[in-house]
Each structure stands twice: as structure tokens, then as C-alpha cells.
Design a protein around this nucleic acid. Structure first.
Lengths: 147, 147
DNA sequence: TAATATAGGACTAATCAGGTCGGAGTTGAG
DNA sequence: CTCAACTCCGACCTGATTAGTCCTATATTA
């Protein structure tokens, strides 16, 4: 029901932790998992995926861990979601040529892809930096916003 | 992965059909299901739910069926989605006091509810009337828009 | 070399969407 | 008035997706 997966939740928590709380910006999967009380193995998988796509870099061995490869202000929520959950599509007949059974007779496809694009732009607007309230990396326009 | 259910797809198709194509604005679940080649019983369930919430009215017996109770321009996509899929929440710890395991330590909840609100407003903007291109019920601002 | 970290595949468990079934109520023709 | 056809209605079942676990290999540091 228009919900993003727990993997994405965990990935978001981890990335925000690396951006805001991790000492020297480095933390192991175990440390993050213990911090938020989430399954270590599962978080590890998410971080591996993020590493594969270049959002974080991994350092093996003792005292290793992950760290961001870009400033938090340069990572959008849209990128994170799509990195973990795959391409954004609110309907089965997404942007790929998957073509559901009703492809020929479907009358609501066009409006729905337009909606998808708008949602995507919402996610593109929000950056990782905007998720850490104390940091100075957030844009002025948002810093002063009410509520 | 941020996808809305097939039930919602079917419901959307059905409502648009009632608004735009159905003779006298009335059609049975069977007729709509055959028109789009989707499972009759499943669509029936969706229509029942929509009837329970008052978006359509049901007429039993021969020559019965469903019809809209409001003008298509007064039904937003947000309403339809939430009527079928339940309250909009991109994360498990939605607006209800469900409180996931990490409620206390979660650091991304506030930004995410803000994102949810923005997505909701996107869905509120689009009405059922805007999904039937030939009808005159759509607002001028959209009628002339490119693409 | 022992300890710690990531890498990655295979496997199991739980959840939920998708689909199915029989029943109850209404209508209209004979 | 009766009956048969048509429709809505609500509970049930199943299969696919997601969440989570386990195990082994590889790399790095003290």
C-alpha cells in the first residue's frame, strides 16, 4: 500500500548515522545495527548493496566499516530508495516494458505515470542532509521554515 | 517498494469507467471486469469496499450495478487510494500509534512523515475527472497543459 | 596468527496481496 | 404469487513477496 520496505528504512537509518553520528564518519554494520536494534545480517546486506552502487565505501578488517563517499547534501532520498528498492513505480506496469495483462485496454496508465513523476520529484527534493536537524548542511530555505 | 496494490488499480479503472464510459453511469461488476479482463470477484470486492465508504452506490437485482454518488471532479486520487489500501503511510510506523520496535531510537521518522504529507498532497491534487481526457469536467489549467 | 570486518550465496519463516468459493438478497418475468 | 436469473456480499484459501537467518569465504589489523 504505497509503503517502502524495511530494508529502505534500515538503509536510511544507517546513512543518516554515518552522516551525523558516526565517529570520524565511519561505523561498522554491527555497530549501527546495535545502535538501532535491527538484525545485523539484514543491515549488512543493505550496506553491501549501497557499497556496490558507490554511495558508501567499505573498509574490511578490524576497525573497518563503512563511510559515505559523498556529502550528505548531495544524496537525495530518491536515490537511496531506488538504490535499495529498485526503480520507483507505483504500479506494476512501471517504466520498464513489463506490460501487464491489461496493457491494451488500460485507461489510467498515463495519469498514473504522471503521478509517479511527481512523487519522484518529492523524493528528489529531500536530501540526506535535511534529515539531520542539527547539521549546518541544510539549505537556508529549509532551516527557517516553520513547523 | 512504494507500489500501490492491484486492488487500487482495479478500483481506479472501475471508477473511471463509471465516470466516463458506463451507459447512464451505471455498470455491474461483471460488465466492468469483462471490459478490462480482470477477475470478477476481486473487482466486486473492491467495489463493495467503495460502496461501504459511500463513493459508489450499489443496486441489487437484475439490471443492477454501481454508480458514482459524487461528480468525478470531487473525488481525489488520495481518497480512492486510502479507501481501498487504507491510510497512506510509506513506513510501518505510520500515523497510527503502531510504534515499531525502533520507535524510541528512530531518527528518520519526522522527515519521513513530512515526505508522506507531500506525497499525500500530490494525490489530493489529482481528481478522477482529470483521468478522463475527453470530458469537460477537467479544469482549464490542465486542459491546455502540454504533454 | 587470532580477531574482526565485509562479501555473498542459499535457505527458512512470516506476512500480505491476489484470487476463489458458497450464500443471501433483489428484481422481474411468467 | 412463484420461481428463476441476476446481483451484491462476506468469509476462506493460496501463492508470491518480503523479512530474517545461516554459513562460508576473503581481507585487514593488532
Amino acid at each position: 500500500m504505497l509503503r517502502l520496505s524495511k530494508k529502505t528504512d534500515y538503509g536510511l537509518l544507517a546513512l543518516r548515522y554515518l552522516a551525523a553520528e558516526a565517529p570520524a564518519g565511519v561505523a561498522s554494520a554491527r555497530a549501527i545495527a546495535e545502535r538501532y536494534d535491527i538484525p545485523v545480517e539484514l543491515l549488512a546486506k543493505v550496506l553491501q548493496q549501497l557499497a556496490r552502487l558507490g554511495y558508501v565505501a567499505a573498509q574490511k578488517g578490524a576497525h573497518g566499516g563503512y563511510h559515505l563517499t559523498r556529502p550528505a547534501s548531495a544524496i537525495s532520498l530518491a536515490e537511496i530508495v531506488q538504490a535499495i528498492d529498485g526503480p520507483l513505480a507505483i504500479t506494476a506496469c512501471g517504466r520498464d516494458e513489463e506490460q501487464c495483462e491489461q496493457f491494451g485496454t488500460c485507461t489510467v496508465r498515463d495519469p498514473l505515470v504522471r503521478v509517479t513523476e511527481r512523487i519522484l520529484s518529492v523524493l528528489q527534493t529531500m536530501t540526506l542532509a535535511e534529515m539531520v536537524p542539527g547539521e549546518g548542511a541544510m539549505p537556508m530555505v529549509w532551516r527557517g521554515a516553520a513547523r
